[in-house]
Design a protein around this nucleic acid. Sequence first.
DNA 1: ATCATTTCCGAACGTTCGTACTATATCAGC
DNA 2: GCTGATATAGTACGAACGTTCGGAAATGAT
Lengths: 197, 197
Amino acid sequence: MSKGTETRERIIEHAYRVATCDGLEGLSIGTLAADLRLSKSGLFAHFGSKEALQIDVLKTAATQFEQAAILPALRASRGEPRVRALFELWLAWMDRPENVGGCLLTAAAAELDDRPGAPRDFLCFTEKQHMGVLAKAARLAVSEGHFRPEVDTKQFAFEWKGIMLAYHQTARLMCDPAAPALARAAFERLLASAHSA
Amino acid sequence: MSKGTETRERIIEHAYRVATCDGLEGLSIGTLAADLRLSKSGLFAHFGSKEALQIDVLKTAATQFEQAAILPALRASRGEPRVRALFELWLAWMDRPENVGGCLLTAAAAELDDRPGAPRDFLCFTEKQHMGVLAKAARLAVSEGHFRPEVDTKQFAFEWKGIMLAYHQTARLMCDPAAPALARAAFERLLASAHSA
DNA sequence: ATCATTTCCGAACGTTCGTACTATATCAGC
DNA sequence: GCTGATATAGTACGAACGTTCGGAAATGAT
């Protein structure tokens, strides 16, 4: 790896951590440069614009999440086990040390939902993909006979997402230590309602 | 009403709209002043600091929500009818024209969850109150015999909140017109699971 | 109509913002 | 070791930021 891409990755990694706390708009070229002992212009040269940096950070967030939650969940067997694995890996992901300020994608979703532009487009695409993964996992659970055939998998994904969002808010803003238990209980209820009778 | 408080309210009302789109940190004294054809210093004098303005905007958001959703829901009879009324009023609230960029409290929750300070403290207090309202509504549904006695009302409120958050994201970021239907179906499922057998 | 108070403006402060341009280091291939 | 490319620094820019201050203008009570 050349020197350039090395520092470039150092920048993104740090910017990612900062963004989980201060949001994508909270990223500042000057502050990032000072943190990493670079000059403003030196850091800037790697991206060409702040928006490009934001997008790169978002891309990192997406691939990190996929590496940490989605891919390993595929090792669980199709159907409900994989659904459960995905849920637990997702929960674990949100408490990883690199996610100092919580899940960046979740924070960015609230931040960007009214700001048209490339970052929003990318995030929207990513979220759609992830929702597709949830729905597909549910669909496999249906075809494996774990879930009832009438289960609406898009609806399932929607409610699943709701649980994760409620967890995020309960754990981060409210600092309620009961958050994981609440989330797990909610998910069990969701699973139960999908189970074959 | 004196001239001072009149313009002050004009400022807050406009700032509230802007904040639903750009976030609390996106509020800028200069831009707000230009929008309202005031001088920066003239606007500033009404609050003394940007943080004070942010808190006033948050307070407006909280009381607006209470006026539009919580209070009118009390006119429905105790128990499940009131729970349903609260849900529908909440949904309607999020699509009101004054909430251009969605629910400010929801957006602020994501924005402030890692920024200690008075705004966060106020928001945290408000959210706790609102969650209490949801739980209490559920508790009344239990005592009225609409819900089973074993229903965990805190858990109920958590899942309810999740549905609202998922709705917010699905409707705003994803621009999915199915969002209301998804939210209503999810809520029906939640209600069904709480119903007496 | 007078006067004290409230309300607002204009100008300026020092910082920080993202970005542009130019120049100096540092590197890789020969 | 030279050379061309890559990577970083330095400096400067205009604009916007929140905030301060002194004074003008409008207001409201007497």
